[in-house]
Design a binder for these strands. Structure first.
Lengths: 135, 135
DNA sequence: CCGCATCCTACCGGATACTG
DNA sequence: CAGTATCCGGTAGGATGCGG
């Protein structure tokens, strides 16, 4: 038996709204607001779609407290320039907050904002998905 | 007022498990299974990370019933070769099922599998996120 | 030492044209 | 309609260097 072990009825996988509920909620907004939502979703998917963005955020989702550049680099096996770019994008999107400490050795910490934290259940959901399924 | 309108206390954004719950659940598995889960998550993030994968899946998440190649192509504004590749990958991952009808004009339909459907609340969550936040 | 910027190379994704 | 073939540009990845 190397496949997914019979999971002990993992809770939470069906958490979140159904398609019908989501569509109904969507109807409750006026067209202008609906358009803004669509654009935001598109932009969000675009950001999350870039290579390693999800992996980076997921690292923050399962970490407790701030993370450092080198920690992410080794943990994720990602090239430093790419990591740097992603961190800048996420900081610009106000999903991460960058704090530099003027010390020796130097230290830079990245902390997820509230905006990012409200995104984290997504990664928990993906984790649960992996408990039940394989790829 | 062009920013996000004060949302009428949208439900569902906090749906899903917290980080603590997720980590606790993780502890309940033996090391071998934990390793499998990690690999699956990594593979999943890798797949979802590729350009337009999330957008394609999200299209299925909010659609009712199967979708066709041309529909996705126009709806998502994505190059045909790229769409073709993504659909092949998703089909190989058993997230989509491809059904070809021998007709004129030819028709090919893609249907999300149960594996994919259990992933859909993620997209609903992202949609809700866009209701509360901006990018 | 750590956090990046730079240079270069390889590959991936976009546009277009074409076929079953 | 549903893809493939081809070409090309952008972007990720690896190595290296350097400032703080």
């Amino acid at each position: 038996m190397t496949g997914p072990t019979d999971p002990p009825d993992v809770p939470g996988l069906s958490a979140g709204l159904s398609r019908e509920e989501a569509l109904a909620l969507r109807e409750s907004f006026d067209p202008d607001e609906r358009e803004r939502i669509d654009e935001t979703v598109a932009a969000l998917l675009d950001l999350l779609g870039k290579a390693h963005t999800m992996a980076v955020l997921s690292a923050f989702a399962f970490a407790d407290g701030p993370l450092r550049f080198s920690g992410l680099e080794s943990q994720l096996d990602i090239a430093p320039n790419t990591l740097s770019t992603r961190l800048q994008e996420l900081t610009a999107a106000e999903l991460l907050e960058r704090t530099a400490y003027d010390e020796v050795p130097p230290r830079v910490e990245y902390t997820p904002t509230e905006k990012a934290e409200s995104l984290f259940p997504v990664f928990a959901h993906l984790h649960h998905w992996a408990i039940e399924y394989d790829l």
